[in-house]
Design a protein around this nucleic acid. Structure first.
Ligand SMILES: [Mn+2]
Ligand SMILES: [Mn+2]
Ligand SMILES: [Mn+2]
Ligand SMILES: [Mn+2]
Lengths: 218, 218
DNA sequence: ACAATCCTTTTGATTAATCAAAAGTTTAAT
DNA sequence: ATTAAACTTTTGATTAATCAAAAGGATTGT
């Protein structure tokens, strides 16, 4: 049995490097998990010992196939739990991330399977993130950040890549929900801002924030 | 934040001594939690330090009011989760105890409250155990063990005081479900057995097993 | 080539939880 | 009153996870 801590490290390595192409820096991992770099180094060594990651000291770390498989299952549990909390228990999409962060480590495969049935085998979580299948494959979509859109583009919102509660509340308050159609009304690289029309209202966003909203052409 | 370990100790102390009248022996607690007596002693000292239990060395341990309140909340979470797993997710009553044993430590009050709403504010869990209110009060029923029944008694099953998976499966297979009406067809103190009619079929139980089935007169 | 800087790793300590086995207490039996 | 049995507590060690701070690599600018 993997500890919650180990599962969190594996999951974070996957999220920071989903394709397993790059190497994740120790400091980057440490920051994502809110631990000191020394703690991360120490855990990386443990995981390498267990064959779950490959570590090139001073260069970085990467999941092995075995580690990746385990990580993807944690992600599956996280996302199914999130969708369950929203769709079945009626919680707000801005609240469920922290709950799922804990639940992902204790819900059994059987519970996940029952939730999956009840939800009708969903492909995406409340934030638009793909839900891996039980076999570990991920649906792929080609999305682009809202910040890349050009003036006049009409797109629909497909993913919010920021789990922060207040960001999600802000998005909700301004009609920036999954599937919502929006139009780019202004874009000013110098002012670092983009203006969109959502539900007939103008909403102004910094480009950094807009970069965390992913869209597809409708 | 209390650790899962601390919550398990508090909960077990409550279950072993719900009325807070007797003292729980260190060894009894240790056995219930599957730890060595030394581990229990050590944790008891920690809990006493935190004001959650009162410890009389070599005599026993008892929850304080504060400890009891925390324990009852763990019990509430456990039982709501169990009922949720059965009624909403469709799991078997024989499987949910172990799941709930983990989930009770991570589900938030908000999740519990949503489950409670969805379940219609139930008063008892799938095994007939009372669900404490959010304020910590417990519904009381006066039940008696099936082993105390006399020949000819007709009673209905109100609680199964044994969470063991195979016991619960056996009970289910023999129609010994909550609310089922049964009749005592034979009782032999010497042979240590009792025979009941359940769904027209005879079922023979040892008196120890029958002692874990609690009934009320219909 | 040589610092300065920025990371990463190592070292040494700490905390929570546990166990095995030794030591101590209580109780019950002779 | 002793002794034995049963239980509890203490002691000493271990494991997982963490941190602060020291030490060690790598990179970049001069
Ligand atoms: Mn987590
Ligand atoms: Mn999500
Ligand atoms: Mn538990
Ligand atoms: Mn129960």
């Amino acid at each position: 049995m993997l500890s919650s801590t180990v599962e969190n490290y594996l999951k974070e390595l996957f999220l920071l490097n989903p394709d397993g192409e790059t190497q994740v820096a120790t400091g980057e991992l440490a920051k994502a998990l809110s631990v000191t770099p020394g703690s991360a180094t120490s855990m990386i060594k443990t995981l390498a010992q267990a064959g779950l990651v490959e570590h090139r000291p001073h260069y970085g770390v990467k999941l092995t196939n075995e580690g990746r498989t385990l990580a993807v299952h944690v992600v599956r549990r996280h996302r199914i739990v999130e969708l369950f909390l929203v769709n079945i228990l009626g919680m707000d999409w801005s609240e469920v991330h922290d709950e799922a962060e804990q639940l992902e480590h204790v819900v059994s495969d059987q519970v996940i399977s029952k939730m999956d049935d009840l939800l009708g085998h969903p492909t995406h979580d409340p934030h638009g993130d793909p839900i891996p299948t039980p076999e570990g494959t991920l649906p792929v979509r080609s999305l682009q950040p809202l910040s890349f859109c050009k003036l006049g583009d009409t797109v629909s919102i497909a993913r919010i890549g920021n789990q922060n509660t207040s960001f999600l509340k802000f998005a909700e308050d301004n009609g920036l929900l999954l599937g919502a159609t929006i139009k780019v009304a202004n874009k000013n690289e110098v002012a670092d801002s983009i203006t969109i029309i959502s539900k007939g209202e103008e909403v102004v966003l910094g480009l950094a924030a807009a970069g965390r909203i992913e869209v597809e052409f409708a």
